[in-house]
Design a protein around this nucleic acid. Sequence first.
DNA 1: TCTGGGGTCCTAGGACCC
DNA 2: TCTGGGGTCCTAGGACCC
Length: 425
Amino acid sequence: MLYSKKKFALVDCNSFYVSCERLFNPSILKKPVVVLSNNDGCVISRSAEAKNLGIKMGEPYFKVAKIVKKNDVKIFSTNFALYGDISRRVMKTLKQFSPQMEVYSIDEAFLDLSSIKNENLLEHAYKIRKTILKWTGIPTSIGIATTKTLSKAANYIAKKEKSGVIDFINSKQVDNFLLEIEINNVWGVGRQLTKFYIKNGINTAYDLKKIHNSWIKKNTNVFGSRTAMELRGFPCISLEPHEEKRKNCCVSRSFGKKVTKLEELSEAITAHSLNAAEKIRLDKQTVKKITVFIRTSPFVDKKNYYANSKSIDLAIKTNDSIELIKQALFILKNIYRKGYKYQKAGIILSGLEDVNSYDKNLFSKIRNEIKREKLMKAIDYANARYGRNSLSIAQAGLKKIWSGKKQHYSKIDTASFRLLPTVRI
DNA sequence: TCTGGGGTCCTAGGACCC
DNA sequence: TCTGGGGTCCTAGGACCC
């Protein structure tokens, strides 16, 4: 045998962000609900009822405002602290069903079910769904197959089934299911590949499965041929159970209203630098390279579009907020141009490394290094204890006129007693 | 008026070396 | 001053994911 038969399950939470909001707000249970991205910009999660109204994923809010109003669609701004917390509960529960598990995103995970007998797979999946729903309140869909790509495909079909589970391993109609999946909904096929495939008459997952391997190899990259092989049942992508530390860390936001002044951009970049520094300290990492970028809106006034970014390689790796801010503001001054209406700014920390590999060298410029480390620890502690940005630095600004809109925030914080819902009897 | 944010991986091309 | 082939490493940009 060329390979060992694996069995994968992809467990995916249904309309995850919406489901999280529903947990604390039963009045929106059977109603159309959407969750908006930062700054209330785009739709990033939709309930089944909202999908049926024709509201599309990723659509700008202002384009669906009419439908929203007409159908009394309930709107929520993002509450990532809440979604992250619920996600951890779901993953913890899932882990009981297979220690070999890969948390793939905030709302989905691959499980290795190779040890389960074929005839028991369905029953096992139902049990997983039932337990997750009972313990966390979150509805899920499960797809089972011999490769990750096929389990994604099975999951896609499962989302439309009442049972919420599709098992390709025991099914004789896999090809029929694959015919139902448009090529752009295949895992690993994005916008560019979709265009190319459709031009060549490949319109469904089934078409991609049936196309000659030599053609795929000649015309696409390794990604393309991997996807096609996986659709045929040859595993090319393995389970990655270890949670690896991130290699880059980006913090960026678009502004609530357009920003023109360097001072305002500086405030935003300072705030983003603080958040990024805190994130990498939490992971016990240091950074080698800082990039700062700013841009105007790519949608309005295209003639006056301006976007720029620059990087600095640090002489010495650090995770010190004050040092990072200093460098970031230096870059910002360098790329800032007067007379533009800026829409977004951000900072990227790359070349992240573990603190242990932290090597002090001759160019160390941070004086009182021990003191500064203690200061950073104090800031991190205060912000963990009293909420993000409880302790900041003055440079980040207090008014924050650049900060985004959050008009429909649910104000649920599972880590705060103050915000617990009250029950009146 | 209003168009998200945070990641990973691959690839082509340049710099450098022998 | 000119000549060639072949290798590695790094980086920026693109494509993809949720």
